[in-house]
């Protein structure tokens, strides 16, 4: 993290990163964080001061509130997770005319096919988990 953040601020940022495009309403954020509205708005203000979120005024659920739009992007390694190239012993001889090349690398093939299958499975699991979470929130409210 570029700046020192408290545990709650880190949690808030992690949550906001899930909603990178639309952002989150302040009230939604503190519900998810499990803090009071007072503490929630303090966190939002602190994050705004640190330049990590933009607080946009919005009329939602019959009242004026603020939407927190993240001004940060997460560096992700996800698309190359498990890629064999980074730890490959033949990396320096890989390429056109080399001992091995991406065209005939079985490890590269295995990774591409394997990660596609793993991704579809993970997406299915994530969707299922989100459904369960939403249902439990509805039941609680």
């Amino acid at each position: 993290m570029p700046q020192k953040l408290s545990k709650l601020e880190e949690k808030a940022i992690a949550l906001l990163l899930k909603y990178q495009d639309k952002g989150l309403l302040q009230s939604e954020l503190w519900h998810k964080l499990g803090v009071t509205s007072r503490e929630g708005s303090r966190i939002a203000i602190r994050l705004e001061k640190k330049g990590m979120v933009k607080r946009v005024k919005e009329f939602a659920k019959d009242r004026w509130t603020r939407r927190l739009v993240p001004l940060i992007r997460r560096v992700t390694i996800e698309p190359i997770r498990g890629a064999p190239c980074l730890s490959c012993e033949q990396e320096h001889v890989c390429g056109e005319g080399g001992v091995i090349s991406p065209k005939n690398c079985p490890r590269l093939e295995k990774w591409v096919i394997g990660s596609l299958t793993a991704k579809s499975e993970a997406q299915a699991q994530e969707a299922q988990a989100e459904n369960i979470q939403e249902q439990s929130v509805e039941t609680q409210s």
Binding site: G51, L71, I72, R73, V75, L86
Partner: peptide
Amino acid sequence: MLLIIEKETLVELARLVGGE
């Protein structure tokens, strides 16, 4: 816009390069 790298990403990067 800020770019942040999470701790878990750093751990994952080390795993990719040098294993567990």
